[in-house]
Amino acid sequence: MHIRGKVMKYGDNIDTDVIIPARYLTSSDPLELAKHCMEDLDPTFTQRVTQETVLVAGKNFGCGSSREHAPLAIKGAGVQAVIATSFARIFYRNAINVGLPILECEEASQALEEGEEVEIDLNQGVIRSLTTGRLFQAQAFPPFLQEVIREGGLMNLVKKRVS
């Protein structure tokens, strides 16, 4: 699976309260949540994000609450994938469960700049900057999680196994 997009870059410790403030958790519709994604940190986010955005951030992305609305809001905003040095544990699981592609890669998270065009091979975990030509190798998912990702999230996997 290949993803192509343009980088929007943020720093370390982007928490779930800024990704989607609790006052908007009355909806679980990704498109509704997306209207308020990141608004407390960057009010321009919703205007700048496109269906071809790749978020790049530093360490501990998604720290804080267990709200699954956080990866849903990011996905609903059109973000194709998130590359970070590291993800907070609950966000990591939630992202996989809702089918938001995430990649842990410190090198890429440091090197990629705002506006760079990137291409991601999700199966191989390879990130390529089309702007600079640089290649980055992300951490591979364990096979069990690869299966969850292939099925488009935990819910789809369970549905398939139950049926």
Binding site: S66, E68, I90, R93, N97, V98, G153, M155, V158
Partner: peptide, 30 residues
């Protein structure tokens, strides 16, 4: 498991308690 990040509170009782998201709570309930 609890669908709240501060589920780790119960660790003070010597339990392994951890926060999860909503879909995982659904799977755990099923």
């Amino acid at each position: 498991v609890g669908a709240d990040s501060h589920t780790c509170t119960y660790g003070a009782l010597g339990a392994f308690a951890t926060g999860i998201g909503s879909t995982e709570l659904a799977v755990a309930m099923i």
